[in-house]
Simulated scan of single mutants.
Amino acid sequence: MKVSGLLRRGFGPALYVLVPLTLYLTGWHTEVLGCAQQALLATGLFQPQLAPASTQPQADYSLPLRTLDGRLTTLAELRGQPILLNLWATWCPPCVAEMPGLQRLHDKLRGQKIALVLLSMDENPEKARRFAVRRGFTMPIYTLAGDVPAVFNTESIPTTYIISPTGTIVARHEGMANYNSPEMLQFLQQLAR
């Protein structure tokens, strides 16, 4: 009895330190938090705000991008179609949480003239590539190949911009959201018309 009570009193509180420390040191804390936040997204409470951006600035198509296989490009390659631009990072749990929904949206958009651009803000592009491979993502993931134009500067990630075919930023959403919704699909398809 004494040993059992000692274990509960001594080891129990230690778990509150050991479990988070272990998750952090192994790098799994982002994945675990991301999974917990995915459960929150599944409730439907975190929908992106599709209200028009207040000033509706023009997108800067010179945004320098690098594909995960190293090809340099810019947002200009996608000019003339709606673009959902999502700024994220592998170390950001809310970003990780919304990725499966973005992948499902990407799957629904196949063959349509609507572009998803998932721009990893990781300093090491290899982290984004390994993350995409490990998760089996097929959506277009890019890394930054230069400076972010001022119109896309943000203090938080994830941040998502929706750009019309004419280059107007018609919506902006900071924070995690579930983009795999009928409303988002309809919104993007209406922009494409």
Rank of each mutant, 00 (worst) to 15 (best):
T26I: 10
W28D: 14
W28C: 12
E31D: 14
L33H: 15
C35D: 15
C35Q: 15
Q37N: 08
Q38D: 04
Q38S: 07
A39R: 13
A39V: 14
L41D: 03
T43L: 11
G44K: 06
L45D: 12
Q47Y: 04
P48Q: 01
Q49G: 14
L50W: 07
L50M: 09
A51F: 01
A51L: 15
T55M: 09
Q56D: 14
Q56W: 03
Q58C: 09
A59T: 05
A59L: 05
A59R: 03
A59V: 03
D60F: 01
S62T: 15
L63V: 08
L65C: 07
R66N: 11
T67G: 11
G70C: 00
R71L: 13
T74Q: 06
T74F: 00
A76D: 15
E77Q: 13
Q81V: 11
Q81Y: 05
P82H: 07
I83M: 05
L84T: 07
L85D: 03
L85K: 11
N86S: 10
N86R: 00
W91R: 02
C92V: 10
C92L: 09
P93D: 12
P93M: 04
C95Q: 11
V96S: 10
V96P: 05
A97Y: 05
M99L: 13
G101T: 00
L102T: 06
L102Q: 07
L102H: 10
L102V: 10
L105A: 09
K108T: 11
L109K: 04
L109C: 05
Q112T: 10
Q112H: 14
Q112M: 07
K113R: 14
K113G: 06
I114F: 02
L116F: 06
V117D: 04
V117E: 03
L118S: 13
L118R: 01
L119A: 00
D122K: 01
E123S: 11
N124D: 15
N124L: 10
P125F: 03
A128R: 00
A128H: 03
R130S: 12
R130T: 14
F131P: 09
V133N: 07
V133Y: 06
M139D: 09
I141F: 01
Y142I: 02
L144D: 02
L144S: 04
A145F: 09
G146Y: 00
D147N: 12
V148L: 11
P149M: 01
A150E: 09
A150Y: 08
F152R: 05
